[in-house]
């Protein structure tokens, strides 16, 4: 037993040493973590944002993140904080690839209102949100994950698409929101934020 234990212990330390060594020899990765701490200060360390009207980035698709970072840099999407990121093309790729690996956000722990979940679910199907965003609203490629996004951010975004202050990349969401009412926006944000 004890020899097995010691072999395990040695193996453990060897692996740990390799990791530590590898980490010190990867200044680039370190740089990313340091730089990303600025992002995660608002967007949430573990992919889940606790900042009002600031999106959770966890589980977000890399192509969508890349498009948004690009739009911010080019000032085609307006936000004082985000327009000043001063990223190179390589930075845009680095951040979108790495931020997409954060764990997906979780729905609020409190039990949702069953009636609102029902009516919101009907709206998701009726407006075919789940055709592009995936049936589980996890997104794919350039179409973002929306499941369990912050409710206030969903509200803000849907309203911006509706009133044409956020154009999006290909203009698709402005069309989708055209027939959706303010009351339905509220219902959609409620159910998407709590999607399970």
């Amino acid at each position: 037993m004890s020899s097995i234990m010691s072999i395990r212990a040695v193996t453990y330390f060897v692996i740990l040493a390799i990791f530590l060594l590898a980490d010190t020899q990867r200044p680039h990765a370190k740089t990313f973590n340091e730089r990303a701490s600025v992002c995660l200060g608002c967007h949430g360390e573990k992919g889940q944002s606790n900042t009002p009207e600031t999106p959770s980035l966890g589980g977000q698709t890399a192509p969508y993140l890349l498009i948004q970072l690009y739009l911010f840099r080019e000032k085609q999407r307006v936000s004082e904080t985000m327009n000043d990121i001063g990223f190179s093309d390589d930075d845009l790729r680095l951040f979108s690839d790495n931020l997409s690996k954060l764990p997906p956000p979780l729905p609020p722990s409190s039990a949702p209102d069953a009636a609102r979940m029902t009516s919101g679910g009907v709206l998701i199907t009726k407006h075919r949100c789940n055709n592009c965003h995936n049936l589980d609203l996890s997104g794919r490629d350039n179409v973002p994950r929306i499941a369990n996004q912050r409710e206030d951010y969903l509200l803000k975004t849907l309203r911006e698409y509706k009133n044409n202050t956020r154009h999006g990349y290909d203009g698709m969401m402005a069309e989708v929101l055209a027939p959706i009412t303010e009351a339905q926006i509220v219902d959609l944000a409620y159910v998407i934020a709590r999607f399970r």
Partner: peptide
């Protein structure tokens, strides 16, 4: 069917798994 005039998803068949994988392909921004 509540898709707005203009959506390319108008006419998308319901409950068809092959069709459910088809959505406009956006190019990389860079």
């Amino acid at each position: 069917p509540a898709l707005p005039p203009g959506s390319p998803l108008i006419g998308r068949p319901e409950g068809n798994e092959a069709a459910a994988k088809l959505a406009p392909v956006a190019p990389p921004p860079l």
